[in-house]
Nucleic acid binder design. Sequence first.
RNA 1: GCGCCCGUAGCUCAGCGGAUAGAGCAAUUGACUACGGAUCAAUAGGCCGGGGGUUCAAAUCCCUCCGGGCGCACCA
Length: 553
Amino acid sequence: MNPADLSASVLAIVTSVLERRGSTGTLTVDDIPLERPRNRDHGDWASNIAMRLAKGLGVNPRELAEEFAAGLREADGVSDVEVAGPGFINIRLDAAAAGALAKIIVDKGAEYGRGSLYEGVTINLEFVSANPTGPIHIGGVRWAAVGDSLARIFQAEGGIVTREYYFNDHGAQIDRFARSLLASYLGEPTPEDGYGGEYISDIAARVVADYPGDLADIPTREEAQEVFRSVGVELMFGDIKKSLHDFGVDFDVYFHENELHETKAVDRALARLSELGAIYEKDGATWFESTKYGDDRDRVVIRSDGEAAYISGDLAYYLNKRERGFERNLIMLGADHHGYVRRLMAMTSAFGDTPEYNLEILIGQLVNLVRDGEPMRMSKRAGTVVVLEDLVEAVGVDAARYALVRSSSDSQVDIDLDLLQKKTNDNPVFYVQYAHARTRSVARNAAAAGVDRSAFDASLLTHETESILLGILAEFPRVVLQAAELREPHRVARYAEELAGAYHRWYDNCRVTPLGEEPVTDVHRTRLWLNDAAGQVLRNALGLLGVSAPERM
RNA sequence: GCGCCCGUAGCUCAGCGGAUAGAGCAAUUGACUACGGAUCAAUAGGCCGGGGGUUCAAAUCCCUCCGGGCGCACCA
């Protein structure tokens, strides 16, 4: 008996009661709310369906609930039903019906928890996309962790996901980067508005080493700068790829903005807008009339100096993604870019697509760097830039990813490296990982003691901690579904913590291997199934977060 | 001025209309000659920022005020 079966039973009963009352509306499983009550006294599952329907029918909710309850008491696997409070229906399952789940989970293995929300849907998830003018700093790391986890969650729901990194290799920032490299090479001071970090001199030195000839032979400063630009960007890009890879994040596509300009995709995008009548000229510039599509002001697409404005690249990039066949396109941006959302939605409408469906912008709040409880500004000059490698070095990949993915992207997070270095055990990731390691350890001990999974009798799983553990295991598929729908990977992390806690408490109360000379019974064998089911779900949940599930710690 | 996000236990945060608001850390007290004590049990700790409204039911939805963060370019 899993929640879906129970929902179906409840639906059947509700429908028959409604028919008897002459009600005409039709209900689906989605209309049957079923939750696991916080309080154990309220049963394994509870529904407020009677309260929802009572008003429309003009009856007392408790009375209606009693009618539903009477039918439910006859349902398979239900041991007890009671009506409580204003009209809640509290359902208790019999042990066998609840416990059957343990075997189902073990049999499904890594498949348990997967769903079909995005079955066959092509999804492009763009994240990080930091400019190749420096290493990934701590702001970008959050999106690496959250974005990769979200991609895994979409995949678990059947989505055909492409992880994409938009590589901004066109425009003024790259020029500044190239000038900075050249200046470093020539021993000049960092140019105004240039980049001055230590990595600049490192990259400059590597450009010199990589260059096949002698840089001193290059006749003009412009040509030398171009060498530093092209080689330097490649080097920087390689570094970024490597540090992301070491963080467990690999992109399927690294898209170069330059390509959009070189292939005239930008021109084609603007021509398309022009055909749609959404382009006009004013003050020597070319404008996109985005206010027609909900933006709060129109946007320049070609500046009066003839250069394409930044948004032009985005217009072309969006069309490119659509041409590549992506139904859903998501872009994760930091809160400092939220002002960009409306114009991108206007663009989506202008092209005849559906905002929030074909294109969705996920805004995440920023990461604050904190030292001794005091917020610090990240400054390349002051040497207070914290990069991905610093974070990983301080706490390791698992703890870093978990810490970043554990809280909602709607809240800002503080990162205090000193604190993380001192007290890594504060990170709940160890609690969860330990629970998993413990399931493996129990399995090893069971094997040594001659306990195997040759028998399974769910009716033996009668301890209170077993019924709680089973209830939590049953919820995993909906947690994944909800995390996907809401684009909130942190729900999976919180769930993993809850599961880990329930597992530890079960472990404390219910032994899998017999004590001393006690014989091995079916109780032990059945508990081994439950142990392995818990381990499987912990493994699946950690997998969605990109965090390892160790055999031992 | 306009827009987005946040305000919940000492700290970090969960809680997409449900019952007595939860977890981790920190504090106090207990539990191994029992499958790993990176664990468990217990105690303590809350005008859910303030005020109004909608609802059978509000931390959750709406309005408003206060406080904090971030944006409002022919920059990218």
